[in-house]
């Protein structure tokens, strides 16, 4: 019929098919990639504060983290989102998970983490006043965010500590 339009249509359609095919191949090429990152330490360093404010318990902690997440990278990773999670059970909620600290890592060179006495970004905050004497487990998660393809997360549980039976008064040494 009309050659210009037919050809344009063919070129665009073929181009899109090729791009889609390449995207699919990229996505599947790293499907079986197992990075085996090493997490050497993740532990509580210090409970900085622990109090009740506006009817909810909140604690601020420092933590140590030594991990090498560089092996988790492959050519289809745009960024690794690494975060520290506090997990605990209270009377009201059998499961609570709270992100305490997170970081966007865009290059493998930045993936070697060696943090000492790191201050959390977000407080350890309960929904009520039930944190006294609670066992808290720290987990390290890393979320693989691809250029194209599937998103997946790995995690390890590292350290468990118990919050004190009493609130910490400001200035009190612990």
């Amino acid at each position: 019929m009309n050659t210009v339009w037919v050809r344009l249509n063919a070129v665009v359609f073929f181009g899109l098919t090729v791009l889609l095919g390449l995207a699919l191949m990229t996505a599947t090429s790293t499907y079986l990639h197992e990075g085996h990152p090493t997490v050497k330490t993740l532990r509580l360093n210090k409970i900085k504060s622990f109090r009740s404010q506006s009817k909810v318990d909140r604690a601020i902690i420092n933590f140590d983290l030594e991990a090498d997440l560089a092996p988790a990278f492959n050519w289809n990773i745009k960024q690794i989102f690494v975060f520290v999670v506090a997990e605990f059970a209270t009377k009201t909620n059998p499961l609570n998970q709270i992100i305490l600290w997170d970081k966007i890592i865009e290059k493998p060179e930045d993936a070697r983490l060696n943090l000492k006495k790191m201050h959390v970004k977000y407080g350890l905050i309960d929904q009520r006043e039930e944190l006294k004497g609670t066992d808290v487990t720290l987990h390290l998660y890393w979320d693989h965010m691809p250029l194209t393809g599937r998103l997946y997360t790995h995690s390890v549980a590292e350290d468990t500590f118990t919050l004190p039976m009493e609130y910490i008064r400001p200035g009190q040494q612990v």
Binding site: F81, T92, N93, P94, L95, N96, Q97, I98, I99, Y122, I125, Q127
Partner: peptide
């Protein structure tokens, strides 16, 4: 991204 999960005994989440 989800940064806090509170799960009740009946399985509902906030």
């Amino acid at each position: 991204r989800i940064m806090k999960v509170h799960e009740k005994p009946d399985g509902t989440v906030e």
